[in-house]
Design a protein around this nucleic acid. Structure first.
Length: 316
DNA sequence: AACACGGGCAACCGCACAGAC
DNA sequence: GGTCTGTGCGGTTGCCCGTGT
């Protein structure tokens, strides 16, 4: 048998929370911490489902939540992140401290979608709508979506409002563009060959290659390829050899750095270093990207990886 | 003043997955 | 290894309130 039953068949209240209920829940959590949510209602003296308590805590009572309207900067950030992540509200919320996924989802559905449409942008594909408007609600065309952290149009405008950095963004896009399968395999082979002297595989060398394909696959089919591969490799190699959690962090770092830099530009008064020119902005961006990627070099035994890759390489 | 309508928001629902037994 | 529960997430619903008629 499993664990003790949750709140099923219990008498539970639904609907809006009263201030008294909020107080009970808040006092309980601050006093005892978050343990098992299913036991919280009983312990806190609430006639609520544990799930409901969790939601109330996360969306309303949790310390550090921002209240009030979203700033234009936050809205721009959400649009940019949505273009990359789609409806992954929890991941988008993770980039906006103090905001909840529910809040962002509501904002998107009630406001941002309309604003984009008014600007002639398809909120699903983040592309310019056709003049007919007939395809307004159409999903992305039959082309597989590709993870592209630096789309050429809106995102560039957002990242570089001055608009003087076209060459720089072109270089970035060339550097970090998704690779075709044959390019990807060649990169893998090169990495394995070039590492033969040391006996270790230079993970950093192929980082952005595998990253791009992993995320692309994840977006395409909903199969979280990189996580599955991580689990397989981790179980085979052991955590001492390959710490996948740090790898995942490294994958996100460039994006997080962009966001910070972007916020820094938009909120120069928040105690952060101000970027005075687009050149300085470029320099900052390049430095942060190269630092994140170079740091991401993890030592993995070549033989073990080659064996794993030959045994069970995912089909693209 | 009464009603209809729409926007914004909080909360619920259902599903998937991980973990406990 | 199978079953069941707990948790997290995204989609959806329904309530409240402001505005227009």
């Amino acid at each position: 048998m499993g664990r003790h039953p949750c709140c099923a068949k219990q008498k539970v209240r639904k609907g809006l929370w009263s201030p008294e209920e909020d107080e009970k829940l808040y006092n309980h959590i601050t006093r005892f911490g978050i343990g098992c949510w299913s036991s919280v209602p009983k312990q806190a003296g609430l006639e609520r489902c544990g799930k409901s308590c969790r939601l109330r805590w996360i969306n309303y009572l949790r310390p550090g939540l921002k209240r009030g309207n979203f700033s234009p900067q936050e809205e721009d950030l959400i649009v940019s992140l949505h273009e990359i992540l789609g409806n992954r509200w929890s991941q988008i919320a993770a980039q906006l401290p103090g905001r909840t996924d529910n809040e962002i989802k509501n904002l998107w559905n009630s406001s941002l979608k309309k604003k984009l449409k008014q600007r002639g942008i398809n909120p699903i594909a983040h592309k310019q709508l056709r003049e007919t408007g007939a395809q307004e609600e159409m999903p992305r065309p039959d082309v597989k979506p590709i993870f592209d952290p630096f789309p050429s149009s809106e995102y560039q405008a957002a990242m570089d409002p001055i608009g003087t950095n076209a060459n720089f963004y072109h270089q970035l896009q060339q550097t970090y563009r998704p690779l075709e399968l044959n390019e990807f395999m060649a990169k893998f082979d090169d990495s394995l060959v070039s590492s033969s002297n040391s006996g270790y595989w230079n993970y950093g060398e192929a980082l952005y290659v595998s990253d791009t394909h992993a995320i692309q696959e994840s977006l395409n089919s909903g199969i979280n390829w990189n996580c599955n591969r991580a689990a397989q490799m981790s179980s085979m190699l052991g955590n001492e050899v390959l710490n996948w959690s740090s790898f995942e962090i490294k994958l996100e770092s460039p994006l997080q750095t962009e966001i910070k830099t972007y916020e820094q530009r938009l909120n120069p008064c928040q105690g952060l270093q101000r970027v005075e020119s687009s050149e300085e902005f470029s320099s900052c961006l390049t430095t942060s990207l190269s630092r994140d990627l170079s740091d991401a070099c993890l030592d993995v035994s070549q033989d073990e990886l080659a064996c794993e890759l030959n045994r069970d390489f995912p089909s693209f």
